[in-house]
Nucleic acid binder design. Structure first.
Lengths: 338, 338
DNA sequence: TTGTAAGCGTTATCAG
DNA sequence: CTGATAACGCTTACAA
């Protein structure tokens, strides 16, 4: 049934009148082949329609060229932006991205990593969730590089890339106070991921340092709808806040829409709002949201740079590092007096 | 340097006191192994930390389990939603997704497909761009399944999934007319992809059938910013339209924001707007956009169902088919009198 | 620079 | 049901 469909290096070698090692070397960057041999091999390959079998190559080299991207909530603006950047840079680095969606089912990060191991991935980048320690160890032991983005872990093996969430949150307090706000609030989801909690704690702490109390509310998943619900809860109180820091832009958009259209509250006139991530929609005229920019392309380039080092390379650097990146405040119209 | 890091089936076999074929069979769904052997193998595998090498397996089976997703503008709401659905269903089908981003560089769909061939992908799904005929043929010849989504091609080999764009566009005309609109316009990008053009032509034709002329404008890439520019061009004319059909929701959002905030035109009071795709933002209160829903999960399930058929299976079905799906009109507030 | 030969970790085939 | 043996397509010493 399944006759020979692919051309093998042997066939190319036969046609070109050389050995199969010559063919192999022709397709191995930086191997020594004479110009003549090379040309004849290339011609034969072209004529026959030869394509290197990366499966076999990976088997021999112990290096598949595959990098696993493990992600949930993939259709979210921030996540998809990061994904775009990562795939682009990986391709430039000669790697290929294997995408694993961990949306449904719990503990699926572990499952994903096991998948990565079965395909002998050179590295994995974890954009969401946290793997079990044992799996992490397994990955590292098998020579797989690991990158954790915004996971805020302290394990030694992987590369950890995080933002200065706490400090950033402090800057929002300053901005709110300068805008004349006094009744501060923080709108969060129930996800309780490290970065979300760091923003909350940083905000509360900075306000406390100024003698202000913050009303904190958490609800649902980190999306637009949750933002609306949070607004309903927080804007119907006797002591209505005049400034809200939302843990993400999606929450902020929902919050703002509810404030304006449901409660007829003017933003930023009666209520200042800030978000986090700087998703594309934050810049849309309807929102014009002041927010913090995730340095997406820096994150991606740091990640790719590190994981595409050759396996043996640079003993020090390949020991997990921790990188803290700066989240820049993007001033827009949702806070008075920029 | 790189000592043996992975456990092989041989080692498992030795420890379990069986042959390596027994190990292989244990990890092959639906192979015949006695319960006792199976248990001993599983124990040994667990103890040693054995993980099937999919590279080697793929090499033997002529089936890698890899499906390539070829996509550009990956961070766009519609694309990322489709991507989410596809990855989820692929995983359920026991496949693994390899993501190729064709953003930069031209002819990169061809490049992507060659990548797919090198990794011996079982199938490729093309979400954007069009591959060269010769490459398509190459893929099919090497037994790779091909799915084209919204590419509207007529080649015989691949599975083609399209929407009833023309007909849908006709329904918008009806809706506009019923809302009392007389000066119809169509806002498009310059991308000129088949589906975009089908929407334009369907709209113009349906209007013509009712004796109405449509003012058509095309600008830039299919995004929010282009929508704003289109609004600036179309809303400053002497004969200002009272109804605009935008080729995508992103264009519509930009158009609507410019109309309201830049030209103080009331939507839907003075101007009705419709979009296409039903991205998440279309349902946000600020836009409340009437639009057509891409049946994303149906698209994905049709695609996955078809490409995960075994290679020999169903001679008829594996010959490329063409599926036309229905785009359902989602009524919201951007057209009067729903 | 080139060819020879020995693997890499699987699965398929075929006896037993 | 089980085990030997032969592929699969490639890379890489090693020797020429």
């Amino acid at each position: 049934m399944s006759e020979k469909v692919f051309v093998s290096a042997q066939e190319v070698a036969d046609r070109a009148g050389v050995s199969r090692s010559a063919v192999s070397r022709t397709f191995t960057p930086g191997a020594s082949v004479s110009a003549g041999t090379r040309r004849r091999v290339l011609e034969a390959a072209e004529a026959l329609g030869y394509h290197v079998n990366e499966l076999a190559r990976g088997l021999m080299r112990n290096e598949s060229g595959i990098v696993c991207l493990i992600v949930s909530d993939l259709a979210t603006p921030y996540r998809s932006a990061l994904l775009r950047e990562l795939t682009l840079l990986l391709q430039n680095a000669g790697k290929v991205a294997m995408l694993i969606n961990t949306d449904r089912s719990d503990g699926s990060v572990d499952h994903a990593l096991r998948q990565a191991i079965r395909y002998r991935a050179d590295a994995s980048v974890i954009l969401s969730g946290m793997p079990d320690k044992s799996i992490t160890q397994l990955c590292l032991r098998t020579g797989q590089r690991l990158v954790l983005i915004n996971r805020d872990d302290d394990e030694p093996g992987p590369l950890r890339i995080n933002l200065d969430d706490r400090e950033a949150a402090g800057r929002v307090v300053t901005a709110f106070v300068r805008a004349g706000c006094r009744r501060l609030a923080f709108a969060n989801s129930e996800a309780r991921t490290p970065s979300l909690m760091a923003r909350e704690q940083g905000f509360v702490a900075a306000a406390a340092a100024l003698g202000m109390e913050v009303s904190v509310e958490r609800y649902g998943w980190t999306g637009y709808e949750a933002g609306k619900v949070l607004a309903q809860r927080m804007l119907t109180r006797a002591m209505r806040p005049d400034a809200v820091f939302c843990a993400t832009d999606l929450l902020a958009c929902g919050f703002m829409d509810a404030a304006r259209h449901q409660f007829s509250i003017s933003v930023p006139g009666q209520l200042c709002i800030a978000g986090f991530d700087n998703i594309e929609q934050a810049s849309w005229t309807s929102y014009d949201l002041t927010t913090f920019a995730q340095p997406v392309s820096t994150i991606a380039s740091k990640a790719v740079e590190w994981l595409s080092q050759a396996r043996g390379e640079s003993g020090d650097n390949s020991q997990g590092r921790s990188i803290e990146l700066h989240a820049e405040l993007v001033w827009r119209g949702s806070i008075r007096g920029g």
